[in-house]
């Protein structure tokens, strides 16, 4: 699993660059590098469904973020209580990592998962659903409620975006409202 360590180190470096660099377009592209690293990691961890989805989602996130950075206002101010804020943030992160170190010990060891629920799915998935792709049989047959909830959340997010971005109701009266933009 050496390649996984290398990939994760690369992703950590990419995340640091994405947060610290001053040019916004470079920052967005560094996030794209981190996302493609996640996609490759999914491929190494034997999850091809997720690798395909993550690849496409990464491209869409990149388009949306570049769309956001087209407004060229890039403030970089470090005034105020800079030292106190930084110290408090680092203490918080240190405490978080310490707690995470002890919490990780309770997880199953890497490479040997507990297959209590999934054992049934693996053993009887093909017989009960007839689908060769076990992930599809889990999300659409054994746990289809989960997918129904996901569809609801997606619908709500679409409604939210359209409501926030529309123009009617936010304009003054003398301005012309474009009809296409409902």
């Amino acid at each position: 699993m050496l390649e996984l360590y290398i990939l994760l180190s690369f992703m950590i470096i990419g995340a640091v660059i994405a947060l610290e660099i001053k040019d916004m377009i470079s920052s967005v592209i560094a996030v794209g590098a981190v996302g493609l690293g996640v996609s490759i990691a999914f491929l190494i961890l034997k999850a091809p469904d997720l690798a395909i989805t993550q690849l496409v989602v990464e491209i869409l996130i990149l388009i949306i973020l570049i769309r956001l950075t087209l407004k060229r206002d890039l403030p970089f101010s470090t005034s105020g209580r800079w030292l106190l804020n930084t110290v408090v943030t680092f203490i918080f992160i240190a405490v978080f990592l310490g707690v995470a170190y002890f919490a990780i010990k309770d997880l199953p060891e890497f490479g040997s998962p507990i297959l209590r629920v999934a054992g049934t799915y693996i053993a009887e998935g093909l017989k009960k659903t007839g689908a060769a792709n076990l992930v599809a049989s889990v999300i659409l047959d054994f746990r289809a409620y989960d997918t129904l909830g996901e569809a609801t959340v997606l619908f709500t997010a679409v409604i939210g975006v359209i409501t926030i971005m529309r123009k009617i109701g936010r304009k003054k009266i003398d301005e012309v409202v474009n009809e296409e933009d409902e």
Partner: peptide
């Protein structure tokens, strides 16, 4: 076979993450 259950959960979470 690797555990298919987390993969199924995360597959929905990725799409939700994009929408959010």
């Amino acid at each position: 076979i690797v555990d298919p259950l987390p993969q199924a959960l995360i597959l929905t979470a990725i799409v939700i993450g994009l929408a959010v």
